[in-house]
Structures are given as structure tokens and as C-alpha cells.
Computed example of a mutant assay.
Amino acid sequence: MSHIVSVAQLIHLQRAAEHGTGPAVRLLDVRWRLDRPEGRLEYLQAHLPGAVYVDLEHELARRGEPAEGRHPLPEADDLQRAARGWGLDDGDIVVAYDDNRSVPAARLWWLLRRAGVDVRVLDGGIRAWTAEGLPIERGDVLPAPGGITLKGGAGGVLALDQVEEFRDSGVLLDVRTPEQYSGARTATDPVGGHIPGAVNLPAMVAVSSDGRLQQPDVLRRIFATAGVDAGTEVAVYCGSGVAAMHTALALELSGIRALVYPGSWSQWSNTRGQPVAVGILPDGRLTQV
């Protein structure tokens, strides 16, 4: 199964579905960003024809305590209920997109792929679609409920109590900005810094200037600068587990399977007693939460 699709590949899949030579294609619009977590307004103004809006804050995460992080993973039953509400059926090809360099779409990709769904990310998102002069729609799309059954997606996760042990045997990537990593910027968390031993590689280095992901050979060179190649055990974290899944997608495209620490810094920094490194070096100046 592919992980991303171009606009041309999406159109090919849609035409195959229309002619009965391929499975149904379901479009999911995952508009979200840190400064505007509710993307429904943008969706209502313009979206790909037939696309259903997905609410990242409430459908791809759940409410939790601060010690769980800002975006705890949704419960399996809740995710399946949401997926059926998006009109998904078993055997569908799901294509997710957004207007934020595929970061929120990658969260949906990560959640559904580990549940056994053939889900892909539209490379370049809605901007790539409109750049081709293709039609868009306004208003809401309310699909008939689907009957998809999600598999128990329990793999691919690094839990809070596994992080330090993993760090001793693999590479732990912190994909936040250098300012967040060093502790110079602490906008939303109680303390700044990073998990001791984590290597900083900002998520956006995997994205080209047009919002598309870099080619696999370029991605491999980028990850090699952080000591990551096909033989490396690697885990990824960010601020709250969204951008980390985008880096997991980029790693997958380069042939590297990664674990994700979903709680990320928002959980680590809210858990009393956890060690914290401050500064630009992986081990930095050590302190505690």
C-alpha cells in the first residue's frame, strides 16, 4: 500500500472507482493548526469535492489529564465510531489532506494505518489540488454511515515509561523547533527543554518549499544527519504527538519504520520527576520537571 498520493494519482484512483475497476475512494479533510485548531470554517468555504471534515481535536484525540499530554490517542471504539461517521467501509481507499504541509493529515494516516486501513496522504494537500485548476466545493458533506471495522492497532507506540530505556538502545528524535528543543521557547508547557539524549531534527526539514514531502532519497540523507538509517531503531516525539506522526510518515517513505511517543513533550513536561535537558546538545544541562 502506498503512503502518499499525488493529485494525478488521486484522480486515477477516483476514475477507477467510478468505472468499477477499483475500490471506493473516501476523501477526508483534516484542516487543523496550533493557532486555529478548529478548521471547519475553512472546510466549509472550500474543500475537495465529496470530502468529509475530520475534527482532529475531538475525533483524532480525546480529552485527558495534563499528565497524558495535550492530544492523547483516541480510544479504539471512539475512533471506529468516528470512522463510520465519515462514511468509511471496509476495503475503501482513504485519502487525507489538509492545508498545513500534511501535518494533521499524517495524524489520521498514522491512526488508521495501524488499524489496518489503506489510507494515504494527498501530497501538497488542497493547495496542490487547486494549483491544478481542479474544482472545489463549498458547504458540508454529510455521508451515510459506513460499516468499517478497525483492527486493534496496538503497535508502533512508545509509552512514557519506555522512553528512557529506548533512548539507551535507539535514536530518539525530537522534531520540534530548535527554540523549543533548547528550552528557549516554552509557550504552552510548564518547563522548556527536551528529553535527555534526544536528537533535534525539526519536522519541517522533510517538507519542500511547495508543501510537498521531499523525495525518498532526500529524506534518507536528511535522517542520516541525525544518525538514522534503515538499520536504526528510531522513535519520534514532538510537542503533543501531531508533528511526530508527520515525521513517522516521512521516515516510512524513506524505508524506515519508527515508533511514536504520542504523549510527547506535553506529557513529559507535566510528569513530576522526569529529567529534562536544556540547551542545544542532546544531554544538555540536566534538571527535572
Rank of each mutant, 00 (worst) to 15 (best):
264 S>M: 05
46 A>L: 09
181 Y>C: 13
117 V>K: 05
1 M>E: 11
130 T>V: 15
103 V>M: 14
251 L>Y: 02
187 A>N: 13
152 G>P: 13
125 G>L: 00
287 T>R: 12
245 M>P: 04
115 A>C: 15
209 S>H: 08
68 E>H: 06
50 G>W: 13
62 R>D: 11
178 P>N: 09
279 G>L: 11
203 A>H: 04
18 E>W: 07
10 L>C: 06
39 G>M: 08
238 C>W: 01
85 G>W: 01
268 W>D: 05
187 A>K: 13
50 G>A: 12
158 L>Q: 06
165 E>F: 09
171 V>D: 04
36 R>T: 12
126 I>A: 06
1 M>P: 05
48 L>N: 02
63 R>H: 14
103 V>E: 12
208 S>C: 07
95 V>G: 01
6 S>H: 02
198 A>Y: 01
106 A>L: 09
208 S>K: 06
282 P>V: 10
48 L>A: 05
91 G>P: 02
23 P>D: 03
110 W>R: 07
101 R>D: 06
109 W>N: 03
272 R>L: 08
122 L>M: 02
67 A>W: 08
229 D>I: 03
177 T>A: 10
190 P>S: 07
167 R>M: 15
195 I>H: 02
131 A>V: 08
82 A>E: 07
266 S>K: 07
61 A>F: 10
197 G>R: 06
127 R>Q: 14
54 V>T: 10
278 V>G: 13
229 D>A: 01
161 D>H: 14
186 T>C: 08
190 P>I: 06
56 L>V: 12
63 R>A: 14
285 R>F: 15
265 W>M: 14
7 V>C: 08
32 W>H: 09
270 N>M: 12
